[in-house]
Every structure is written in structure tokens, then in C-alpha cells.
Amino acid sequence: MVKRAGVGFYIFLIIFVFLVMFPFIWVFLTSIKPQGEIFSSFQWFSSNMTLDNYASALETRPLLMYMMNSFVVATLTTIISIIVASFTAYAVTRLPIRFKGLILGLVLAASMFPQIAVLSPIFNFVTDAGLRNSYLGLVIPYITISLPLAIWILSTFFIKIPLALEESAKLDGATPFQTFRKIIFPLAAPGVFTTAILVFIAAWNEYLFALTINTDDRWRTIPVGISFYQSQYSVPWGDITAATVIVTIPIVVLVLLFQRRIVAGLTSGSVKE
């Protein structure tokens, strides 16, 4: 912690960040090159920059529709799983119930199972229920991923709130649910928000269920939509790089705004404090 940073350190840091960011930089530089230059040269900068690729990316495929779909599905998933998970995390961390270890063990096991193991029964279920190519058809399977994740992270935030607060709420005559709703939940708001961001990103990025369940182009999400830009015969790299830049921008904004919270959420529980 107290080691001071020298010039050599900053050089290392710049190289590291450059290596990490290189694919984005290159993809961005490609996206503003004219079609002809993408295939012929490995020059970094083009002398005739153009936005043609962006126009083409938005025309050939309903990219904005994909983003809309992803946004709706990820938001619904986040809201549902945060509500359900906050109840559970609260009960497990702060209420005198039995089998806490068992419940958390179940949650942990649920967060570890491979999605492929539930894919075909959920596909059958969603098909039978007529939910293929709909938002709900994705939200239901996404709960399998987001709910255990949310419980797992939320419980680390809930347990940090001092017990004394509840005791005094109790003395003032608050019911246990009032204590949860009016004291604990607001106090844990930063943790809840952090969890919500992580759940949202997980749902936004999901590929396997989206690929299988929403096969209609109208209902595809971003990850699946992007992967369908390449056809069997031609790979329109101009379109693909432009589309990649467009869908990466919201993520970059999200990360820039909330990087501190995201790191807190990711490292919660893996580090003892």
C-alpha cells in the first residue's frame, strides 16, 4: 500500500492498460475505415475516415432492437431477482431461522451448476408455455443465473450492517418486516445497487438461453444478434466492428460510472474484512 510509484511503474502500467485495451482500440480504428482498407492494409489510421460502417451496421440488422430487447430482459431479470434475493439474504443473515448453512449451500450449488444441464427441460417448458420469442421466455431462465448470484452478494452486504439498529427498531415497536423495509433495506441500498449492477451485466451478457429460446430475429438479444452478423459466405468486418463499438459504449459508460461499486461487489466475500 505505501510503496511509491516510480517512472518505471507508470511505464509498466501504460503498457498493461494498452495491451488490455488494444482489441478495442483496433476494432474502433477499423470501424471508421472505408470498406476497401479493412481487407487490404494493417495501417493504424486511415486517411479517409468514414461512418459508413455504422450506418451499414444499423441498416443490415436491427441492432437497436437487439439492444432494446437486452435492456428489457436484463432490467426485468434484475428487478425480480433483487426483490426475491433481498428477502432471502435478509432472512439468512439476520433472522433466527434454522438451516442457514444448508440454504446458503443450496444457493452456492445453484450458482455453480452448468446452464447446459437445465437447457433442454427449460426449452421444453418455455415452448409448451408458448413463451418462445418473448421477454418472459428469457427472464424465467435468467433467474436461474441471477437469483443465486444476487443472494450470494447481497448477504455479504446485509451482514455488515450493525445488529444494534435492529434491536433499537424492535424496542421502538417495529415489526420484523418493518425493520427490514424501513431500516435494513435503505441502509443496504449501496450494496443492493452494486448487486443490481452485477446482476444486470450477467443478464445482459447471457448467450446460451438467448440463442436457444429467442430464435426470431425480432427477439434476439445483443450477444446473439452480434454473433449472427457473420454469415456463412461473407464476413462483413466493417459492420461487425461498428456494431461492436456501438454495443460496447453503454458498458464502458456503466463501468466508468460505477467501477468502484463493481469492484466492491466482485470482491465481496472473496476477501475477509
Binding site: 502500467l13 492498460v17 488490455v20 485495451m21 482489441p23 478495442f24 483496433w26 476494432v27 477499423t30 451485466i201 445482459w204 451478457n205 448467450y207 445483443i222 450477444p223 446473439v224 452480434i226 454473433s227 452478423y229 457473420q230 464476413v235 468486418w237 461487425i240 466492428t241 461492436t244 454495443v247 460496447t248 458498458i251 464502458v252 456503466l254 463501468v255 466508468l256 467501477q259 468502484r260 463493481i262 469492484v263
Partner: peptide
């Protein structure tokens, strides 16, 4: 903060999008 954000972006983008980028590279 800037380094942290830079480091988080590859983690945060969808794997399918990252895979498309690398297919190109």
C-alpha cells in the same frame, strides 16, 4: 480509477461480443 475501469471493460462486455472481436483479430 481509470486503470480499474480499463481493466473492468473486458470483463463486462458480453463474451459473445469479445469472441466476435477476436474472430476479427
Amino acid at each position: 480509477g481509470l486503470v480499474r475501469a480499463a481493466v473492468l471493460v473486458p470483463w463486462a462486455i458480453p463474451t459473445a461480443v469479445a469472441a466476435m472481436m477476436w474472430t476479427f483479430l
